[in-house]
Computed example of a mutant assay.
Amino acid sequence: MSSITADSSSAAAGRSALRGVLVAFSAYAVFAFSDASIKILHGAVPSYQVAFIGALFGFAAVPFLKRREDAWLDMVKTSNRPMWLLRFICGATGAICSVIAFTKLPMAEAFALLFLLPSFVTILSVIFLKEDVRWQRWTAVILGFVGVLVVLRPGFRELSVGHFCAAIGGLAAAISIVINRALGSKEKRISLYGAGLFGTLAVSGFLMLSEVTAPTATQWIFLASYGLLGALGNVLLMNAAHMAPANLVAPPQYSQMLWAIVFGYLLFNDSIDMPMAFGILLIIFSGLLTLARERKRGTPLPAAVAGNTQAALATTQEDGAEAPER
Rank of each mutant, 00 (worst) to 15 (best):
M1K: 10
S3K: 14
T5W: 13
A6Q: 13
D7F: 08
S9Y: 14
S9R: 15
S9W: 13
S10K: 14
A13L: 03
G20M: 00
A24H: 07
F25M: 13
A27C: 12
A29W: 06
V30K: 03
V30D: 09
V30R: 05
F33T: 14
F33V: 14
S34C: 10
S34E: 09
D35A: 15
I38P: 11
K39E: 02
K39H: 00
H42I: 01
G43T: 06
G43R: 10
S47W: 11
Q49W: 07
V50C: 04
I53L: 11
L56D: 10
F59E: 01
A61W: 08
R67C: 00
D74P: 05
T78I: 08
R81P: 08
P82V: 05
R87Y: 00
R87T: 04
R87V: 06
A92V: 06
F102D: 02
L105W: 10
P106E: 14
E109M: 12
V121C: 05
T122R: 11
L129W: 02
E131G: 04
E131F: 05
V133M: 14
R134N: 14
R137S: 14
I142S: 02
I142N: 05
L143N: 04
V146N: 10
R153S: 15
P154L: 01
P154H: 03
R157W: 02
V161F: 13
H163N: 12
C165G: 04
A167P: 12
I168V: 15
L171G: 08
A172V: 05
A173P: 04
A174G: 03
I175F: 06
R181S: 02
R181A: 03
A182V: 03
G184S: 07
S185T: 15
G196V: 00
L197M: 09
G199S: 08
V203S: 00
G205N: 05
E211P: 07
V212T: 13
A217Q: 04
L223G: 01
A224Y: 02
G230I: 07
N234P: 15
V235S: 00
A240F: 02
A240M: 03
A240K: 05
M243I: 04
P245A: 12
A246W: 05
N247Q: 14
Y254I: 01
L258S: 13
W259P: 11
Y265L: 12
F268S: 01
I272S: 09
P275F: 03
M276L: 03
A277D: 03
A277P: 07
L282T: 03
I283A: 01
S286T: 07
G287V: 01
L288G: 02
L289K: 06
L289S: 00
A292D: 05
K296C: 07
R297G: 02
R297L: 15
L301D: 00
L301I: 08
P302R: 10
P302V: 00
V305A: 09
N308R: 07
Q310V: 12
A312D: 09
T315G: 13
T315M: 15
E318D: 14
D319Q: 14
E322L: 15
A323Y: 12
R326D: 08
